[in-house]
Design a protein around this nucleic acid. Structure first.
Lengths: 141, 141
DNA sequence: TAAAAATAAATTGTATACAATTTATCTAGG
DNA sequence: CCTAGATAAATTGTATACAATTTATTTTTA
């Protein structure tokens, strides 16, 4: 009777995994314009809010570790969107901040959430419910 | 006024992306026992249902392409969980099937969905709502 | 205050992901 | 029947992810 617990359509994680990838794939045409990947884009989102932040805090906000962020930040530096400097008071900390180009990019990206909204087949209410359920999943840790 | 559309907490995609990764990370201790990654596990889920399937169909079910599946299937073959043979009628098709070990693994994994259920901080009803919203996102394509 | 513990990034190693291309094979139309 | 187009995997190249370790620095404590 419990044979179907392993059916893929009975897993909650699978549609989560698949939907996440599918939506990220839909970002691509919008982000390609600015030579950004999705992960680079969410780093920029955080920087547009904070302007300057250390790698650890950035990682906590995005659920990413230095193994992912170190090379990614190097790429954003090469693209001239960010700068990296060591904190004088404690040189273990690397502070990431926006260049002028990085700041200027923000206004060009304001249409992306709207465009993406059109790509997602959910009503405003459904999106809200989905949003809070996902945060409930995330908050438990 | 529309300045906050780019705030990370106003994005729907971000919690989707983060929750997906967090849940997959929670699978790790359960899957490590059988030397499986999450992606290898979902391939096994499909094979436990179908026993034999070609790479293309497998990819369609899992939203994965041959670039991901080819090396992954090689690893599952090395672990002796699957076999790969070319379809005689049309040798472009590679048919993946379970070995005895691969079949036997199924019964050992039946506890995983239950254990994972305990790790996710949602009621049965919430999980159901989340599930259908995610499939709604996926179905639109 | 000097060694031990803690902390933050960076590095290393393994495993995805996926776009784009290539290779091998098959199918259909002339 | 024979070639142009279609199809399925495999390959190539780039970019994450993340566990585990290492390096450099700072803080704690005996």
């Amino acid at each position: 009777m419990k044979d179907d617990v392993l059916k893929i359509e009975n897993q909650l994680c699978f549609p989560l995994y698949a939907a996440s990838k599918e939506i990220i794939r839909k970002y691509k045409p919008f982000l390609d314009k600015y030579d950004l990947t999705y992960t680079q884009y969410i780093v920029m989102l955080v920087l547009w809010e904070h302007d300057s932040i250390n790698v650890k805090t950035l990682g906590e906000k995005l659920f990413l570790d230095s193994g992912t962020l170190t090379p990614l930040l190097k790429k954003l530096e090469t693209k001239k969107y960010i700068n990296k400097v060591k904190l004088e008071k404690d040189t273990r900390n690397v502070i990431v901040s926006l260049t002028k180009e990085g700041k200027d990019l923000k206004s060009k990206c304001t249409n992306i959430p709207l465009e993406m909204g059109k790509c997602i087949n959910l009503s405003k209410e459904e999106a809200k419910v989905l949003y809070s359920l996902l945060y409930k999943v995330l908050k438990e840790k």
